[in-house]
Design a protein around this nucleic acid. Structure first.
Length: 436
RNA sequence: GCGGUCAUAGCUCAGUUGGUUAGAGCACAAGAUUGUGAUUCUUGGGGUCGCGGGUUCGAAUCCCGUUGACCGCCCCA
């Protein structure tokens, strides 16, 4: 193969691919605006320091970073959260609360590409700033569900696992773990589903063998599958912190249930999410069959805006990726066939008829209809095949007889019925027929 | 960053122990068909066999390197 390849992990979007991508973006945007979120955008290139401050120096290995011609250390954005925190932080004093924003943007990570994970990908991000209570979680979880359900995906296709980092810390504290030990336990929890008992190796190396009774209680917590089980597990502890967290859990579950979305969510404390800046509820969406990577992930990050140098502003947010979402839509056969097909295909008899047709074609297009016609004179048979292949609903036929009579023949391409309409009513008739 | 599998037309693939000019289906284009589309038939364009080197009289085929894709590990904001 001569010529050039695209860079590893980067994709070309041919019209068919682009059409699928637009379908996904449209679904996300429709969901977000119906929830009252406002769209924003930001630079693709940011100071490297922004990401190091948020995630630590190790993050640089995973970034598309370089030194620009002015000697600045910069990076293509690997995520939106630090950027949106900056934007909100800069104007925090002037923004009405709650701040509900979303974006659809491309991100870049210097990682080995795998199924469902590329070096350049798009994400939908939604965040709520300025609301410390679980009302923000209810709103975002409902939006996350709608961002997938809007494509026709159901509770049998995906679900949202809900967990809570604060709850874990309070629970581990009540069991007698110190802070360093608790962090190490959470790392093990994160790996437990995949690695089994080996997940505790790091803990054992750092803090010695865990007391068998404590470990049982950690693993029991991990297996909790419902709010009722959670309440039962915590009943024995007389901890104000745990009681307060439990009250928030009841609010979230009750709110989501009242929206009729209970079947989409599962209590699953095995979700703790890798990086440590999450401060409360965390959640991830997965496909039910479990053969894809996570569809979406998010959680509360109350300290991040302050950590970046701005006001103390509570926040919760999530992101959905286009790659995994696209794979799931594809797998379930929910991808649309033609989203930008012409509505009208104009069939033209010859050179003289072409002149007549052009006037009407321009008028129809100016009226907002999607209209297509063949560049070259073709046999009628060819033109009807092309009309049918194009996905158009109707054909307008400009033959010698029609033009002479001042009419145009309108053919329904589905049932092949035909009728004549006066040329001067073509635009009005077509607008009416196609409802625009 | 580490390991495994793979790479032939736009797509899916065939190609014998190394042997002449590398094939098929689909797709695309033209014609049969100058006023009616999903059929059929005919014809056509399109390949430096991922790239580079080596072995050989001769390489799509064997060897080495390299690039990319897929799978797993690390990581997953």
């Amino acid at each position: 193969m001569a010529g050039f390849q695209s860079l590893p992990g980067f994709r070309d979007f041919y019209p068919e691919d682009f059409s699928r991508r637009q379908h996904i973006f449209r679904g996300w945007r429709t969901a977000a605006t119906s929830f009252g979120f406002q769209e924003y955008d930001a630079p693709v290139l940011e100071p490297l320091e922004l990401y190091k401050t948020k995630s630590g120096d190790e993050i640089e290995a995973q970034l598309f970073s370089f030194t620009d011609k002015g000697g600045r250390e910069v990076s293509l954005r690997p995520e939106m959260t630090p950027t949106v925190c900056r934007m909100v932080g800069e104007k925090a004093g002037a923004l009405k609360r709650p701040i509900k924003w979303f974006s659809i943007a491309e991100f870049y990570r210097y990682e080995r590409a795998q199924k469902g994970r590329l070096r350049a990908f798009h994400q939908f991000n939604a965040d709520i700033f300025g609301e410390a209570g679980p009302e923000a979680e209810i709103e975002l979880i409902a939006l996350l569900i709608q961002c997938l359900a809007g494509f026709g995906l159901t509770k049998d296709d995906f679900y949202v696992r809900l967990s809570d980092r604060d709850l874990w810390f309070f629970y581990l504290e009540a069991l007698g773990f110190n802070d360093a030990q608790a962090r190490s336990v959470l790392t093990a929890i994160d790996r437990y589903e995949k690695a089994g008992d080996d997940a505790f190796k790091v803990y054992t190396e750092a803090h010695g063998v865990m007391d068998a009774d404590k470990k049982d209680r950690v693993l029991a917590f991990l297996r909790i599958k419902s709010l009722a089980e959670l309440e039962a597990a915590l009943a024995a502890f007389n901890s104000e912190k745990l009681t307060a967290r439990l009250a928030d859990w009841r609010k979230v579950i009750a709110g989501v249930s009242a929206m009729g979305l209970a079947d989409f969510i599962a209590v699953d404390l095995s979700v703790v999410r890798g990086l440590a800046y999450y401060t409360g509820f965390v959640f991830e969406a997965f496909d039910r069959k479990g053969d894809l990577r996570a569809l979406a992930g998010g959680g509360r990050y109350n300290d991040l805006v302050r950590k970046l140098g701005y006001a103390d502003l509570p926040a919760v947010g999530f992101a959905i990726g286009d790659v995994t979402t696209g794979l799931l839509i594809e797998q379930r056969g929910l991808a649309p066939a033609h989203s930008t097909a012409p509505q009208v295909y104009v069939v033209i008899g010859g050179a003289a008829e072409r002149t007549a047709a052009f006037g009407d074609i321009q008028a129809l297009r100016a009226a907002g209809l999607r209209v297509e016609y063949p560049f070259k004179d073709l046999a009628f048979g060819k033109q009807f095949k092309a009309a049918s292949d194009s996905g158009a609903k109707v054909a307008l036929i400009y033959g010698g007889d029609e033009v002479a009579k001042g009419v145009v023949k309108l053919r329904d391409l589905a049932d092949r019925s035909e009728r004549e309409i006066p040329r001067d009513q073509a635009v009005a008739t077509m607008r009416d027929l196609l409802r625009c």
